[in-house]
Design a protein around this nucleic acid. Structure first.
Lengths: 193, 193
DNA sequence: TAGGTATGAGACAGACCTGTCTCACTACTA
DNA sequence: TAGTAGTGAGACAGGTCTGTCTCATACCTA
């Protein structure tokens, strides 16, 4: 990490904070810990982010962007909608089995910042709605708009629930059951009524 | 609250802590806040609970017990299994609409205590497995044991996902879609294959 | 060379954290 | 009446928290 890169330090702080927040949570991770791990001066951090809360929002937005990009790449290919949905669930299954899986950072953020007016809360809502919107647009190719919204919400619930069960050590069964239920719901909703 | 009741203070601390944890989270709620709200001396609290972590476990176990009791009462009547499952979802719907709903305290605890070896983590797993077990035993009256386990896990995921969406302000749509999906899955699994 | 920008290092403030300790008080019981 | 258990009030220790401040240093560019 050379100091010449325009905002190298800034991004490095975001990524370091992400890892720490993911492992230990938001309140339990102090600024001192973040700057020590990132090997950055405290003032460097505070010059880029006016407060810890804004750093948290930045971390969440950054991860949401990366997640959305992966999702887009995963579903851009010209395959049937069912298969696209299947790929989303498969992707989650691989995520659950990844070595540093600690549950959903956004769900955790919602747990620690439950005030709907808080910027962190809003960042979480943005991400979850983004995922739902993406699934809905896939489903709209095979069912009416209103039905697609309902089915997308249901799939989102299955994904969120599976993520929670995966964090409790039931990753394999969770993704299997969730995927099966999802495919069943999608198949049952095929065609305009 | 008379001081004569054997463990009146103890239970009062548990219930006060529950309200505060629910609203603000675990790390964000300090001991000082709890004893001030409960109007007890600090030593009174520390004589009953050796540490904050053990108080948290006590709060979770207490809430898990109350929840399980309500669930038992809700499903003891002699009605078809489908109807029992429907009642569980309806109960969650009412919970989502209750004035002081802040999401699932156990899911929040999992977010803040992600270490599988931590007593709080274990308390969460106990509660979630308890809910799953109860649904499984209902389902076993209408489908094979292995199928009941899978369906119960799926219903649990729907409930957890619906709770998260409800916290994000989509309570009505969430419980409607989750209930509908659940009833569909249960109906599709009826009879021993 | 001169100037501007980003950074490093760390002291510092003020608040809050968990947990311990002492001493006095109340209420009940033997 | 004497003793015991539970409690209240608050000081206290030692640590951590967020956020601010100063001063020195490195680097790039004009």
């Amino acid at each position: 990490m050379t100091s010449s890169s325009a905002s190298g330090k800034r991004q490095h702080v975001v990524e370091t904070a992400y890892v720490l927040f993911k492992r230990a949570g938001f309140h339990a991770t102090g600024i001192d810990r973040i700057i020590a791990e990132a090997d950055v001066a405290k003032m460097t951090m505070y010059r880029h982010f006016p407060s810890k809360d804004e750093l948290i929002v930045e971390v969440l937005d950054y991860r949401a962007m990366r997640f959305d990009r992966q999702l887009a790449r995963l579903t851009q290919e010209d395959v049937p909608p069912e298969q696209k949905i299947g790929r989303i669930f498969d992707w989650h299954g691989r995520w659950f089995r990844s070595p540093d899986f600690h549950g959903c950072l956004f769900a955790h953020a919602l747990a620690e910042f439950g005030d709907p007016g808080h910027p962190v809360f809003k960042a979480v809502v943005r991400q979850k709605n983004g995922l739902k919107r993406r699934m809905r647009s896939i489903l709209e190719d095979m069912m009416p708009r209103g039905r697609a919204e309902s089915v997308a919400a249901t799939l989102l619930m299955l994904i969120e629930g599976a993520t929670l069960l995966a964090q409790m050590g039931q990753a394999d069964a969770a993704i299997r059951d969730a995927r099966k239920a999802a495919m069943g719901i999608v198949a049952a909703s095929r065609r305009p009524q």
